[in-house]
Amino acid sequence: MNLSLTRIAPTPSGYLHLGNAYSFLVTKALAEKHGAKILLRIDDLDRERYRTEYVEDIFETLDFLEIKIDLGPRNLQEFEAEWSQIHRVGKYQDALSTLRQDLKVFACDCSRKKIQQLDSSGYYLGQCIDRRFSLDKPEVAWRMDTMEADYVKFTEYPDLPKKALIPQDSAFYVVRKRDGLPAYHLTSVIDDLHFGVDLIVRGSDLYSSTLAQLDLARHLGEAGFEKIIFHHHPLVKGPKQEKLSKSDGVTSIQSLRKEGKTLKDIKAMVGLEG
């Protein structure tokens, strides 16, 4: 297997936790195994939750975990000046224009509360397709019409061919948010293609995201995205088997470091001794 570039792609919306550390360390291990380089890509388009202290925490955590970054920013100043997603907004807008021209998207003004009211599952089931709002209407999100979505194919690490349909929790996924900014699925696809990533390591909770992004890349005519290898690792759970959250300061790497925990301690806590 010939892999050249993987990535670590945190969001500066809180202090990184044990789950992030586990994912980063798994990424490092696979990169070392295959001689691949590591890109640091910080996903910072959620400007409401963006804080410079969270960006600083990313660099501090990578240093603490002894993870060497081969491509990407080395500090906050470099990140904001050269590597922020803000500098790639033009690429995202080009992709949105392609989707619009090909009539792949529809406008939706549903809030999370309204979606919950429309269906108790909490899943969005395409209720706005027939409402035919203008895509230029204020405060609308752009969603992909997945009514006739076909199987997507990909390779699960190391070499397992897979195909799957987009599940309900990712159907009609958002590509442009209600504030007009490109959404996560679109920016992630465009960035991975832009930098030439060929190995994506992410938690099993993002499996549905992988399927949505493969579908999106196909609509954008980016066949190369299907050639990326994906590794969906198990999640690190909390004491009550809950998914870890950045809002839970107890499991943050920052707080654990302040308690005197070492890298060896962190590896033991996430089951990566040795």
Rank of each mutant, 00 (worst) to 15 (best):
D159G: 09
D159W: 00
D159N: 10
L160Y: 04
L160I: 13
L160W: 06
L160F: 07
P161I: 04
P161H: 02
P161N: 07
P161A: 05
P161W: 01
K162R: 15
K162I: 08
K162V: 06
K162G: 09
K162F: 08
K162M: 14
K162S: 14
K162D: 09
K163V: 03
K163W: 12
K163N: 12
A164C: 07
A164H: 09
L165V: 11
I166H: 01
I166Q: 01
I166E: 05
I166D: 03
P167F: 12
P167V: 11
P167E: 13
P167H: 12
Q168W: 02
D169C: 12
S170W: 03
S170Q: 15
S170P: 02
A171K: 15
A171I: 05
A171F: 00
A171P: 00
F172M: 08
Y173S: 05
Y173V: 03
Y173C: 09
Y173Q: 10
Y173E: 11
Y173L: 10
V174Y: 07
V174H: 01
V175A: 10
V175L: 10
V175Y: 08
V175P: 00
V175C: 12
R176W: 05
K177D: 14
R178D: 07
R178M: 11
D179M: 06
D179N: 15
D179R: 01
G180N: 00
L181C: 00
L181M: 15
L181D: 06
P182R: 04
P182F: 06
P182L: 02
A183H: 03
A183D: 12
A183W: 02
A183G: 10
A183L: 04
Y184R: 04
Y184I: 03
H185M: 04
H185P: 04
H185E: 13
H185Q: 13
L186N: 07
L186P: 11
L186H: 01
L186C: 07
L186D: 11
L186K: 06
L186I: 07
T187F: 03
S188P: 02
S188T: 13
S188R: 09
S188Q: 00
V189P: 00
I190H: 00
I190N: 02
I190F: 03
I190Y: 01
D191R: 04
D191I: 05
D192W: 01
